[in-house]
């Protein structure tokens, strides 16, 4: 992870980014654009979960709470206070980050992984039930609709950019910009000294602490940052789909999909969550007719990957063609 990027990996990153940038020039089909926007929302979510779980070593199972808080927080602020979604997008992230710090505090004292899993799952359930029960504000299970859309603006040289359900291309570029921004933040963080300290914490808490890593600050930082990123993804989701229900925004199904994506792609790698989000989302769309088997497939994938390819698809090449030992 701390090796300098080779020319090959730079070329790979450049090619992926170039492909993502020119895709709308090849096809403006709303369906393709819609699927790709979902891929990028999930990719942001998956990368943030991977930051806590894969790099930080805090195995949480309740990150959908932050997605829902970001989504509902941003939508309600925009609806009730009349703030622009461009502002509430970040406020949604901050709400999620505050919740992340709140739930990160009890986790600080726990070293046992099962306890962390239980606390985070329980917290997400609390958030879901609260959103469903405060129906005066959130309209509960009826669904929150009428969420304001992003305002359009004029970009010099390109012309007017509008955000409407009919034209998904602008959403596509906005999602891409968010994804690139979040990936730059995560990669910069992980390749810094802080990232090294975080990996040390993951691999041996006591050893890391004895070498001067401030575990409290590190855990709160990674939890808050990850919650912030997931919250922004949730807020974008709210202003993109324009309708929210407790099940769709805070359902445990969402978390299961994200876990499946990260495990399939490769836990604890940069590219894993992105690959996983792309592969699973596209695979699911291709198998639309088999909707009833979707979750069954996710479950099977999780079990098979955990048992037979524990480090994910991105390590498949090394597994198939191991490099000769030097």
């Amino acid at each position: 992870m701390f090796k300098p990027l080779t020319q090959k990996s730079w070329a790979g990153i450049g090619a992926a980014l170039a492909l993502a940038l020119v895709l709308p020039l090849i096809t403006r089909d709303p369906y393709v654009m819609h699927v790709m926007v979902l891929v990028m929302i999930f990719a942001i979510f998956a990368s943030a979960w991977n930051l806590v779980t894969g790099f930080g070593g805090l195995k949480t199972f309740g990150h959908h709470a932050f997605f829902g808080l970001g989504a509902y927080g941003s939508a309600l602020l925009a609806l009730n206070l009349g703030l622009s979604p461009w502002i509430t997008l970040w406020l949604g992230g901050l709400i999620a980050a505050a919740a992340g710090l709140l739930i990160g505090t009890p986790i600080l004292r726990i070293r046992s992984m099962p306890h962390v899993a239980i606390v985070t799952l329980g917290f997400a359930e609390i958030v879901r039930i609260c959103i469903a029960n405060f129906s005066g504000l959130t309209r509960g299970e009826m669904g929150l609709w009428g969420i304001p859309q992003f305002e359009g603006f004029t970009l010099p040289g390109i012309g007017k950019v509008t955000f409407s359900p009919a034209d998904k291309v602008s959403f596509y570029y906005l999602a891409l910009a968010l994804l690139v921004l979040m990936m730059v933040v995560i990669v910069r963080l992980m390749r810094s000294k802080t990232g090294l300290a975080m990996l040390a914490m993951r691999d041996g808490e006591d050893a890391a602490e004895s070498l001067g890593v401030n575990l409290t600050r590190m855990k709160l930082m990674v939890f808050g940052l990850s919650a912030f990123i997931v919250g922004v993804a949730g807020a974008f989701y709210a202003h993109y789909l324009l309708i929210l229900t407790p099940a769709s925004a805070v359902g445990v199904d969402l978390m299961i999909s994200i876990i499946a994506m990260v495990l399939v792609g490769g836990l604890g790698t940069f590219a894993g969550p992105l690959v996983g989000a792309l592969v699973l989302t596209v695979l699911i769309e291709l198998m639309r007719d088999l909707e009833n088997y979707r979750l069954l497939g996710y479950g099977l994938l999780i079990v098979l990957i955990v048992m037979f390819l524990p480090r994910g698809l991105v390590t498949l090449r090394e597994r198939l063609f191991p490099r000769p030992q030097e």
Binding site: F61, I256, G299, V303
Partner: peptide, 15 residues
């Protein structure tokens, strides 16, 4: 891995 695998199992059994 046991938590993740039993989570997968739970989805399989549910569906």
């Amino acid at each position: 891995t046991t938590i993740a695998a039993t989570m997968g199992l739970s989805i399989i059994l549910q569906n």
